[in-house]
């Protein structure tokens, strides 16, 4: 019984950790949207900034991946 309770806690925790990915999604969407807005205003400068775009997306996404990792750890490792 106690094991099942722990299992339940793990699954709930994993589900809660998955919320973090929503934050990452918002962040990445924000970056991409702002990049697009800027690129449409000044298309000539956009090509030189794609590297910055990807670095920004990578940084924002990394934090979402951390929460995904927490979910995986709860599901499989704890």
């Amino acid at each position: 019984m106690e094991g099942e309770l722990a299992q339940m806690g793990k699954y709930i925790g994993a589900g809660l950790a998955a919320f973090g990915l929503g934050g990452a999604g918002i962040g990445v969407g924000n970056i991409a949207g702002n990049f697009l807005a800027g690129a449409l205003r000044n298309p000539s400068a956009a090509a030189g900034q794609t590297a910055t775009l990807f670095v920004g997306i990578a940084f924002a996404e990394a934090l979402g991946i951390f929460s995904f990792l927490i979910a995986l750890l709860l599901m499989f490792a704890v």
Partner: peptide, 16 residues
């Protein structure tokens, strides 16, 4: 539960 246990012992999270 048993299956989960065996999976955990055999694989769990192979990365770890």
């Amino acid at each position: 539960h048993e299956a989960g246990h065996t999976a955990e012992t055999s694989s769990g999270m192979p990365q770890l």
